[in-house]
């Protein structure tokens, strides 16, 4: 549905988006993750033809947004960052106005608007002035506003910004449900890891205008930590003296551990061991520890989440500075 090739946008000397290549399939939920100022919003604006593309190409639903922005906007619903409504109109009136701009006949528009308001849980507040809506209600109205034109693609810029955790969760669940039932492709940007992790099929990590990595969460981890994807933390207990079998020294244990297939590095710190490996080595490690005459106090498999990924590249950024 969305295909982007070597997309570039410059503001003077600053390259906001640098050679972005991306493709998103139908019905997918794609999260564009990156810190503030990474170029997420700029990318979205380019996809909608709201700002000019310096070089490269973009296709949304097979249409070039630069050449034919109106056709793109017919098919794409866009929820801007910090969306605004006409405060002196009611929620329903705001939706109807959007529907009219999309040339939807009045009766049909009203029916549709009421259905969607029900879906986002605003039916009770439909005749309230938007000026009196809370932030969460506004955001849900924003989603309704996007859906009223029956889009094939929904693009949202920081949709959960300023929502409380419960509201955020509800909002994200709503997006997922709607996307699954109606087969809508969703692209949203965020700098919030957890929500992206929760709902997205695929994630793209976007820093300084460049796409660092792209894929589902586990493949992202593989891309970013090319070797040592798995970290296992092992706690050992020194053996009691009564034991018949003489325990090996920790140095030999270390050596033995490093002989295990896939282990890249081990760090010993008294009784706590950290093992980095390219595959899951927990069973081998546990038997090794026990066979060497030590007690196993704990074994903790650490899987990488987006947090670590985020930290990782942030650290890279700090290091390069």
């Amino acid at each position: 549905m969305i295909a982007v090739k070597a997309l570039t946008k410059k503001y003077g000397d600053l390259t906001a988006v640098d050679g972005l290549t991306l493709s998103i399939g139908k019905g997918e939920i794609f999260g564009l993750l990156g810190p503030n100022g990474a170029g997420k919003s700029t990318t979205i604006l380019m996809l909608l033809g709201l700002t000019e593309i310096d070089s490269g190409s973009a296709k949304v639903c097979g249409i070039d947004p630069m050449r034919n922005p109106i056709e793109v906007k017919k098919r794409v619903g866009y929820l801007p960052e910090d969306v605004g409504f006409y405060n002196d109109l009611t929620g329903l009136q705001n939706l109807l106005f959007t529907a009219k701009l999309n040339n939807i006949p009045k009766d049909q528009a009203k029916q549709e608007a009421l259905r969607i308001l029900d879906e986002v849980g605003l039916l009770a507040e439909k005749d309230k002035m938007v000026g009196k809506y809370s932030k969460g209600m506004r955001q849900r109205l924003g989603l309704a506003d996007v859906l009223v034109k029956k889009p094939e693609v929904v693009i949202m810029d920081e949709p959960t910004q300023g929502l409380d955790p419960v509201g955020m969760k509800k909002f994200l669940q709503l997006i997922v449900r709607l996307s699954r039932t109606d087969g809508i492709t969703v692209l949203f940007s965020s700098h919030h890891l957890h929500q992206v992790q929760q709902v997205c099929d695929r994630v793209g990590i976007f820093v300084k205008g460049k796409l660092l990595a792209e894929g589902n969460i586990s493949s992202l981890a593989e891309q970013l930590f090319s070797k040592n994807t798995f970290t296992t933390e092992v706690g050992i207990v020194p053996p009691k003296k009564k034991r018949p079998q003489k325990p090996v020294s920790t140095a030999t244990l270390k050596l033995k551990m490093e002989e295990v297939l896939g282990v890249a590095r081990t760090v010993f710190k008294d009784c706590d061991i950290k093992v980095e490996s390219s595959r899951d080595v927990a069973p081998e490690l546990s038997s090794l520890v026990v066979n060497s005459g030590y007690g196993l106090s704990y074994l903790h498999k650490k899987k990488y989440g987006l947090d670590d990924i985020y930290d990782q590249y942030f650290q890279d950024e700090i290091n390069t500075k």
Binding site: I70, K73, P80, G84, F85, L101
Partner: peptide, 14 residues
């Protein structure tokens, strides 16, 4: 300033 402009311009109108 009200944030309505970008919403309106995201609709299929010139």
């Amino acid at each position: 300033n009200r944030g309505t402009l970008s919403r309106i311009l995201a609709q299929p109108i010139p």
